[in-house]
Design a binder for these strands. Structure first.
Length: 377
RNA sequence: GCACGGGUGGUAGAGCGGUCAAUUACAACAGACUGUAAAUCUGUCGCCUUUCGGCUACGAAGGUUCGAAUCCUUCCCCGUGCA
C-alpha cells in the first residue's frame, strides 16, 4: 500500500506539497514521473535514471504483457528486481493503448487537439482494436496476434509485474469523439474501474481513472464515481480539449470532486510549460514521454528554450548544453560534441540528451516545489 | 598507342529515343512529437514564380530525329587490360 500526506496547501492556487510513501521509498510531490514503458527508461540504466533525480517511473501493462510476458517479469522477481530500479514504480493499465492503437491511430490525433472534429459516433469501432463491454481486443503490434484485455486481465498482469501503484483499466477517449460516444465510453470505464478494484488481490495501491473527454458533466460524473470507490489515488486521463486553458479547466472540474487526502496523477501530460499550470490545478504527479522521446529525436530542453541538435551550425559551438544546468552532460560536453553525436547517429548522443532532459525536467519540478514551499505559487 | 568500360543534380548511383527537371539512398534545410506501434515521421531539395507556367540542364562541340540524358561523329577527361 501507499500513504499520501499533504505537507502544505498553497493559498494562491490549488497546488499542494506532499509526499507519497511507497514500499520502495518516498516521492516528494508534485513530481515528474519518467516513462519506462518496457521496463526501461529508454537508453538509460536504472542507476542513471536515479542520478537524474527521477523519483518515480511508470511502465506499461500492455507492452510488458506482450514482451517479455508478465509471467516472465514475475519469475524474474517483479519489475523492481527485473530492471534494478529501486524507486517507486507505477504501471499504466493498457487503457491508453485503446486510444493510441485505436482511434488515435485512425485519426492521427493527439490528446490535445484544437482542430479536432467530432467524428466518432456512439457505436463506432476503431480499425485495429475491438472495444466490447468486457474489455478490448487488441492486435499485437509485434505479430498481429489477438490480445484480449479487460479490467480482470489488466489487474492480473499488473499484479504479476508488481509495481507499487497500479492503474485501473479504462478507455482513453479521442478528441474526435462526440459527446454520445464519450458518454458511452465513460459508462464502460466506470464499470471497468469498479471491476479492477473488485478483482485486485494484492496490497499494491490501485488508482481509479477519470475520463469523460472535454465534457464538463461527464468529467464531474466520472470524478464523483471514482471518488466513491476505495481507490488509493486517482488518475486523470483522456483527451484534454483544444488548448491549455481548456485542459486546466478540465483538471479543475475533476479535482474539485476528488478526495483531497488522496494523490492525483495526471496521465501523459507534461510539456515544460504545462507543469506549473497543472500543479496549480491540483495535480500531484504526472508522467510524460517528452524528455526521453524528444531526446531520441535530437532535441534538448534548456533554461533558454529547446535546442535541436540536428542543426549543422551547432557543430562549432563550444558552449555547454545549458550553462545553468549542473547535470553530468552540461558539466562535461560542448554543444558541438553533442551535435556531432546526434548527426553521426551515435547511441551516446541519445543517451546524453535523455539524461540531461530527465535531469532538467526533474529540476524544473523541484523548483516548483520550492516555490510552493515559499508561498510563491 | 591499341582494346574495352565509363563520364547524370552536394555525394553515391538509376535511367539508355517521347510519360525526365530526371527513380532511389545519403547529405542539406524546415517542421512535427504530451498515460512511447516513435534512435521516428512529414515536407522542401536546378533557377525564376504564390499557382499556372517559364528557363537552363545529364563531360564539350556538332549531327540524326517531329522529339535526345538516351542514337551517330569528333574532342576532352577517368578506370581496367594489352603493348
Amino acid at each position: 500500500m501507499i500513504e499520501y500526506k499533504i505537507l502544505k496547501k498553497s493559498k494562491k492556487s490549488n497546488a499542494r506539497l506532499g509526499v507519497i510513501k511507497t514500499p520502495h521509498g518516498e516521492v516528494q510531490t508534485p513530481a515528474f514521473v519518467a516513462v519506462g514503458t518496457q521496463a526501461t527508461v529508454k537508453t538509460l540504466t536504472a542507476q542513471e535514471v536515479e542520478d537524474t533525480g527521477t523519483q518515480m517511473m511508470i511502465a506499461n501493462t500492455y507492452h510488458l504483457h506482450l514482451k517479455p510476458g508478465d509471467a516472465i517479469v514475475k519469475k524474474q522477481g517483479q519489475i523492481h528486481n527485473f530492471m534494478k530500479l529501486h524507486r517507486p514504480i507505477m504501471t499504466d493499465s493498457g487503457g491508453f493503448q485503446v486510444f493510441s492503437l485505436g482511434f488515435g491511430r485512425d485519426y492521427h490525433v493527439g490528446k490535445i487537439n484544437i482542430d479536432a472534429k467530432e467524428l466518432i459516433k456512439k457505436g463506432d469501432q476503431p480499425k485495429n482494436v475491438k472495444i466490447t463491454e468486457d474489455g478490448v481486443e487488441f492486435r499485437s503490434y509485434l505479430d498481429g496476434s489477438k490480445i484480449f484485455m479487460g479490467p480482470k486481465e489488466s489487474i492480473r498482469i499488473q499484479e504479476n509485474i508488481g509495481a507499487d501503484i497500479m492503474f485501473s483499466f479504462d478507455e482513453c477517449t479521442s478528441p474526435t469523439a462526440t459527446y454520445d460516444y464519450t458518454k458511452d465510453a465513460l459508462e464502460r470505464t466506470k464499470r471497468w474501474i469498479k471491476k479492477s478494484l473488485d478483482v485486485k488481490k494484492t496490497d499494491q495501491a490501485l488508482y481509479g481513472i477519470v475520463q469523460g473527454g472535454r465534457y464538463k458533466d461527464l468529467r464531474i460524473e466520472s470524478a464523483k464515481y471514482a471518488n466513491s470507490l476505495d481507490f488509493a489515488g486517482f488518475g486523470i486521463g483522456g483527451e484534454f480539449g483544444g488548448d491549455k486553458k481548456e485542459m486546466v479547466n478540465m483538471i479543475k472540474w475533476v479535482n474539485a470532486e476528488l478526495d483531497e487526502r488522496k494523490p492525483r496523477h495526471l496521465l501523459g501530460i507534461g510539456f515544460l510549460e504545462d507543469m506549473e499550470k497543472v500543479i496549480k490545478a491540483g495535480v500531484d504527479t504526472f508522467d510524460c514521454t517528452v524528455p526521453t522521446h524528444y531526446a531520441r529525436h535530437g532535441s534538448a530542453f534548456t533554461s533558454h528554450g529547446k535546442i535541436d541538435f540536428k542543426k549543422t551550425k551547432l557543430l562549432t559551438s563550444k558552449l555547454p548544453l545549458d550553462k545553468n544546468c549542473d547535470c553530468y552532460v552540461c558539466q562535461n560536453f560542448t554543444r558541438g560534441y553533442l551535435t556531432h553525436l546526434i548527426k553521426a547517429r551515435e547511441i551516446l548522443g541519445l543517451r546524453l540528451l535523455s539524461y540531461h532532459n530527465l535531469h532538467f525536467f526533474n529540476a524544473y519540478v523541484a523548483n516548483i516545489r520550492q516555490k510552493i514551499k515559499k508561498g510563491e505559487i
